[in-house]
Amino acid sequence: MITIDALRVRDGEQTPLDGVTMLLTANAVHGIAGEGRSVLLRAVYGLLTPESGRISAGGRPLRRREMAYLEAEPHFWPGLTARDCIDLVRRCNPASDPAPLLRRLPVPPDAEAAGMSPAERKRLALVLLLMRHKQVLLLDEPFRGLDVESLFAVQRLILQLGTEGRTLLVAADSLTPLDGICDDLYVLGGGCVRGRYEHYEFQRAARETGFAGK
């Protein structure tokens, strides 16, 4: 169980998170939509320091080494090819086999990663993230920039990861790609949780929050 307790995060004069509380069961896919979703994932990963509140797992602080984080817009060092990036991650994770992931999320191996299309960069970033075999995965806008075929492949992959005992937090700017892959859904707004919904309540979530997405 990951517990986010009364989390408050300030950004200059704004407070995108102001008392956010969530109880996130392990071995599940949790959808997150609405304002402040990216801030929440960055705070969970430790990229932002909360002004107050607590993030814990099983009663102890959640450690970054237990997690992997996919940023909304992946960036790569200029000059590195996709193959170079994969080889670098494989050196740190020698037991990883990228081949099955690349069959589902293909990328041009000899293309410069920084110059690839948005969809290709997103697929490569997901491959690199999953090669690290972390138990908790934070996916910020994993569907953004994807074509229909890639979006479907990522949805199926998320479903599989949820059945493998991983805990996923998946943030998206629309409810549509989250529907059918999440165990539950949290909708944020005004700095707090506007509602929590079970996997079968997505239509009610759209009605009650007014958040249908793009």
Rank of each mutant, 00 (worst) to 15 (best):
L137D: 13
G34L: 01
C85V: 01
H30P: 03
R104Q: 09
P50I: 06
E71V: 15
R204Q: 13
L70G: 08
A57V: 06
R156A: 12
G19H: 00
E13L: 01
G36C: 10
E208M: 08
A33H: 01
R196F: 15
L88M: 13
G195A: 12
V44K: 13
E73D: 12
W77G: 04
G34Y: 09
R123D: 14
G46I: 06
Q155R: 15
A28Y: 09
E13S: 09
P118N: 12
R207V: 03
G165M: 06
E141R: 03
Y186A: 11
E13C: 03
G79H: 04
V20D: 00
T176D: 09
V127C: 05
R83D: 03
A33K: 05
L70W: 13
R64F: 04
L128T: 15
Y45P: 09
S52R: 08
A125T: 07
I181M: 06
L139T: 04
G213S: 10
Q135F: 05
D84G: 08
P142Y: 08
G12S: 03
A57G: 06
G165V: 00
A43R: 02
L23P: 03
F143M: 14
L129K: 01
G46R: 13
A72I: 13
A114W: 10
W77A: 10
L24K: 05
D140L: 13
P50F: 06
L175W: 14
L126T: 14
L185E: 05
L188H: 07
A114D: 14
P61N: 01
D97K: 06
L102R: 11
D84H: 11
L101K: 00
G31A: 04
R54N: 14
L151V: 10
L130F: 10
L151G: 13
Y69K: 07
G210Q: 00
L88F: 15
C182K: 05
E51W: 04
L168H: 09
G191K: 00
G58S: 04
V9A: 01
L130R: 06
Q14M: 10
C192F: 11
F202Y: 07
L138P: 01
G34C: 08
F202W: 10
Q160A: 09
I32K: 02
D5F: 14
M116A: 01
I181Q: 01
L105F: 15
G34I: 13
Q135L: 06
D5K: 04
V148L: 12
Y45D: 11
R37F: 13
T81P: 05
T176G: 11
R8F: 07
I158G: 02
P98L: 09
A72Q: 15
K134L: 08
L128Y: 09
Q14G: 02
M67G: 11
R196V: 12
E141D: 11
L47D: 06
L17E: 00
A82M: 03
Y197I: 08
R91S: 09
V107W: 02
M131Q: 00
K122W: 15
C92I: 04
